[in-house]
Amino acid sequence: MGPLLTMSNEWSYVAALVIGILFGFILEQAGFSSSRKLAGVFYGYDFAVIRVFFSAAGTAAVGILYFDYLGWLDVSQIFINSLYLGSTIVGGLIMGLGFVIGGFCPGTSIAAVAIGKVDAWFFVGGTFLGVLLFDLGYPLYKGLVNGYNYGPVKIHETLGMSAEIFISLFALIAVIVFAVTALVQKKVSDPTKTY
């Protein structure tokens, strides 16, 4: 029963390396090594971000639920990020601004660095600077970062429904979003342009 490797197992580093290689490969294959393609999600000319992101989240969520149901994965043993409500919202808002200004997120910038995008090299440098700045100012917002802690709560519990119902709703919403964004992209995008 999974998870097969504990964090202290040296093989978990090998697993992480292999998973990382596949991660970078998929991101680059999907075109996420291009900031102009990624930024298209905010201007309607390319919704690849929404398509890849929500397909991946849905597939993984259904998969984890099935693995749990079949007894292949002990979900109580996997890491669930806790909800520090204030810090999570502030962090998300700052990242949203970073996304629309920088055109990458940390994962996609790594794939872009690998194929020679100089703007991604600068983004990576900026990310490192940002982390250092956060660390320097940490005493100022330590309370916010560690406050409003609701623990590793699950979305279906927060909404008061079963996981199965939530995933079904999520899939329905995803299909509607895919359809609407396809229509928008058809109107907005210029077919002569590729990124």
Binding site: G98, L129, G130
Partner: peptide
């Protein structure tokens, strides 16, 4: 790109992940 990266670095620190 540098500004966007810096914001992402800060934001991911607050949100405990990117």
């Amino acid at each position: 790109a540098v500004i966007g990266g810096a914001l992402f670095g800060m934001g991911a620190s607050f949100a405990r992940g990117c």
